[in-house]
Structures are given as structure tokens and as C-alpha cells.
């Protein structure tokens, strides 16, 4: 029985006359305690997909189900970790975690709240910086603080929106290990969005590519049949790892070329018109704006 389910969901923005379809006819099933990675190019609509799963974004059509029930609004058991940390800058690391715990367990005593907050901060190895404000932290530390806050909600599903893409390679691998460590100790369902194939193969049970936008959708999954715990140092010698990596990379490159072919090499340019500083004509004119001629000889 899938814990999280997306059935034929589409998301589009903008007025009806000029609708922009971000996601189209998307289907996804995530089993309990499974680690699913969704991989896609930037701009493909990954964050929109994550907002959809978290309940922050409503589907224009189709359904998103959590434990067979439609998600109508965001909820703490769908713990989302935002791409840009979203820590509250006026609160210390500890208080950022506390506000989350307080929201889930409002009846907790002061000392228990304190203890719990310290527990989660320790879990992400930030105990030396509990009283620091977010602006005093490095990117990696902020991301860990954000992780601690999300974990402190004790969510049934952990939604990680490109948690590591803003970090440098060293911090990134350290945090990958930490996330995996936490997950293995305390199994739960994880959906992670990433743009890094290595990261996806290292961490996930299944990898699902998101096709290029607009109107992106999920394509066929790749199963990662590798035993856990996975060792990053010997990974490069693992034949399965190498096979998956090259397969997925090839698939993604194919997607990229296909999408370029699909749009016929024409990059839509913004419609820029020179501003007119003449006085507006006061009498109503019923002339329509001239339809801009599409210039197909644009720069590729």
C-alpha cells in the first residue's frame, strides 16, 4: 500500500488566456519507508512537484493522496525541507527548531521542549552553534539547521527539495552521509529532489527522472539494487553503481536533446516593446494591438 500517491496530477499557472503548464499528467507511488529520488534539470518543475507533495500547491487536475486521503493543505507529518533553508532569521538555531516542535506538540513542558530541541540539533551535529542566528552560519550549517527543524516535526514523509544543491562538494558529501545515517537509524519515507546523478544513486532506492518542462512528467523509474549501507569510497568500483550512473546520465542527456528538438531550437524571447512616452489618447480606441510577428531566426 503506497503511503504517498499522485494520480494524473497537472499543475498550471497564469490566466486562462495564457496558461503555463508546469506539470502534466504526473503519476507517482511511494511505498512506506522507501527512499525515492526525483532527478531533473533545473527549471523542469521539481520544486513545484515538491510543493504539490507537501500540500503547499494544489493540483489543477488530478489527485495527490497521503495514506489514501487527499492532501488539502500543508501538514507537519509531510515534513518539507526547503531548498533555500527558510530559517527564520530573527530566531537562533535552537529557537527555529523549538518553534517547529511547539507547533507539533504544543503541550510539551518547557524542559522537555528544550531537551527535544537539543536532541535534534545534536542529530545534525550543530550543538556547537545552538545560539547562533542563521545569518552567522555557513550554507552547510544553515541547511543542517533546516534539516533539524524538519526532522523535529517527526514527519511520516520527509520531503527534501534539493537539500544539497547549494553546497560545495565536501559539505555536500558530509551532509549526504548524515541524512543517510539518520534515515537508516530511524526509517521513514523520503522523497528527495536532486539534480545530481551520483547523489541519487548513492542515496535512493528508486530514481525517477522528471522530463524537461514545460508540461513535465515523470518517466520510467530506475531501481537501485544495491545493498545498504553503501560506502561512497568503494562505490566507484561497484559495477551496479557504474551501470546505473551511465544509464541514467545517458537517459537524462537524451531528454535534454529531445526537449531541444521538441521546441524546434527556438528560444522564446520576451516581448519587448519600446516604451511610448507620448500622452495617451483620451478617446477610446478599439484597435487591437498588432500581433507580434514571431521571429524564427532567433539565436539558438
Amino acid at each position: 500500500m503506497a503511503i504517498l500517491e499522485v494520480n494524473n496530477a497537472s499543475v498550471s499557472f497564469g490566466p486562462i488566456s495564457n496558461r503555463y503548464e508546469v506539470l502534466n499528467d504526473l503519476n507517482l507511488k511511494v511505498e512506506e519507508n522507501e527512499f525515492v529520488a526525483i532527478i531533473g534539470f533545473s527549471g523542469a518543475g521539481k520544486s513545484t512537484l515538491m510543493s504539490l507533495l507537501a500540500g503547499l500547491q494544489k493540483a489543477t487536475s488530478g489527485k495527490v493522496l497521503f495514506k489514501q486521503k487527499p492532501i488539502s493543505e500543508p501538514r507537519p507529518d509531510l515534513g518539507i525541507m526547503f531548498q533555500n533553508y527558510s530559517l527564520l532569521p530573527w530566531l537562533s538555531v535552537l529557537d527555529n527548531v523549538k518553534i517547529a516542535i511547539n507547533a507539533v506538540q504544543p503541550k510539551l513542558s518547557k524542559s522537555a521542549l528544550d531537551e527535544k530541541a537539543h536532541h535534534y540539533v545534536k542529530m545534525v551535529k550543530l550543538d556547537h552553534a545552538v545560539d547562533k542566528k542563521p545569518q552567522e552560519l555557513s550554507g552547510g550549517m544553515r541547511q543542517r539547521a533546516s534539516l533539524a527543524r524538519t526532522l523535529s516535526l517527526d514527519p511520516e514523509v520527509l520531503l527534501l527539495d534539493e537539500p544539497l544543491s547549494a553546497l560545495d562538494a565536501l559539505t555536500r558529501s558530509e551532509l549526504q552521509d548524515q541524512i543517510l545515517n539518520i534515515w537508516e537509524k530511524n526509517k521513514r519515507t523520503v522523497v528527495m529532489i536532486t539534480n545530481d546523478v551520483d547523489e541519487a544513486v548513492l542515496m535512493a532506492d528508486r530514481i525517477i527522472p522528471l522530463t524537461m518542462g514545460p508540461a513535465a512528467t515523470l518517466s520510467d523509474e530506475f531501481k537501485v539494487n544495491m545493498e545498504r549501507p553503501r560506502n561512497r569510497h568503494t562505490l566507484n568500483d561497484h559495477p551496479e553503481f557504474m551501470r546505473l550512473k551511465s544509464e541514467i546520465t545517458a537517459f537524462m542527456m537524451g531528454l535534454n536533446q529531445e526537449s531541444k528538438k521538441g521546441t524546434g531550437d527556438v528560444i522564446p524571447m520576451p516581448k519587448v516593446k519600446p516604451k511610448s512616452f507620448s500622452l495617451p489618447v483620451m478617446s477610446p480606441t478599439f484597435k487591437q494591438n498588432p500581433v507580434p510577428v514571431k521571429n524564427s531566426s532567433n539565436v539558438a
Partner: peptide
């Protein structure tokens, strides 16, 4: 982003006001 945080945490009106909006 802060509004999203408040939505995920399901903060009530006053918690949202005093912990997110006013600060």
C-alpha cells in the same frame, strides 16, 4: 518562504502573527 514555513507548521493566527509576521 516564511509563510510557507508557517503553513507547514500549521501555526494558528496568533502564533503566525507574533512568531512570523511581526518579527
Amino acid at each position: 518562504d516564511y509563510i510557507n514555513v508557517a503553513r507547514v507548521l500549521k501555526l494558528g493566527f496568533f502564533a503566525r502573527l507574533f512568531k512570523i509576521v511581526i518579527p
